[in-house]
């Protein structure tokens, strides 16, 4: 089955890239852009057969490798 994992910086962590993108958008005329936070997106193809097992394996993978819990949090979607 497929799972999607979204990794984002925790709200308390400064995102220098997001800030740069915000500034760039404002400079090209998007005055209404107040903030941008950049994250990572992963598509996992897993040899699982149930949504529960898929979610649990994706979460395990995110915990172990995809996200660094010091600065990031993640969200799993089972497709």
């Amino acid at each position: 089955m497929k799972a999607r994992v979204y990794v984002t910086l925790k709200p308390s962590v400064f995102d220098p890239q997001g800030k740069t993108i915000t500034d760039a958008l404002q400079s090209i005329g998007y005055a209404g852009v107040e903030d941008v936070r950049q994250g990572k997106y992963f598509e996992l193809e897993l040899a699982t057969t149930t949504p529960e097992a898929t979610r649990s394996m994706a979460a395990d993978i995110a915990d172990k490798l995809l996200a660094n819990p010091v600065i990031e949090s993640y969200r799993v979607e089972v497709v």
Partner: peptide
């Protein structure tokens, strides 16, 4: 060493990007 848990914390992109 940070990722491996020998030391606490993490590295972010430089403020200057």
């Amino acid at each position: 060493l940070l990722e491996a848990g020998f030391l606490p914390g993490a590295m972010l992109r430089n403020r200057s990007v």
